[in-house]
């Protein structure tokens, strides 16, 4: 990738990521489990990859976003896992 790399904050940790790339791609490379299902609390990850299944929802700068539709930008604060969505 020729894209510029920036730092984002993932669960309190600095991670470098190519700017503009779908956030889901970066998060999945770290851990494919992005959140837990509501009742069973089973780990879930990105599924449809095109914004329609909502399995990849995480918290970005305090808002719940589909990470597959959210482009990486410098300094974004991301929370996955428990309590993300």
């Amino acid at each position: 990738m020729s894209a510029e790399t920036v730092l984002i904050r993932l669960n309190g940790r600095e991670v470098s990521a190519p700017v503009g790339q779908p956030l889901a791609q970066v998060l999945t490379a770290v851990d494919p489990a992005l959140r837990f299902s509501p009742k069973d609390k089973a780990p879930r990850g990105m599924f449809c990859g095109m914004g329609l299944c909502f399995e990849c929802m995480v918290e970005v700068d305090g808002l719940r976003r589909r990470s597959c539709l959210t482009p990486v930008s410098a300094g974004m604060v991301v929370r996955t896992g428990e309590g993300a969505a």
Binding site: T28, D31, P32, A33, L34, S37, A42, P43, R44, G45, M46, F47, C48, G49, M50, C68
Partner: peptide, 10 residues
Amino acid sequence: TLPGVIGAGA
């Protein structure tokens, strides 16, 4: 439903 199972389109 396991993380790692994705659509072919995805």
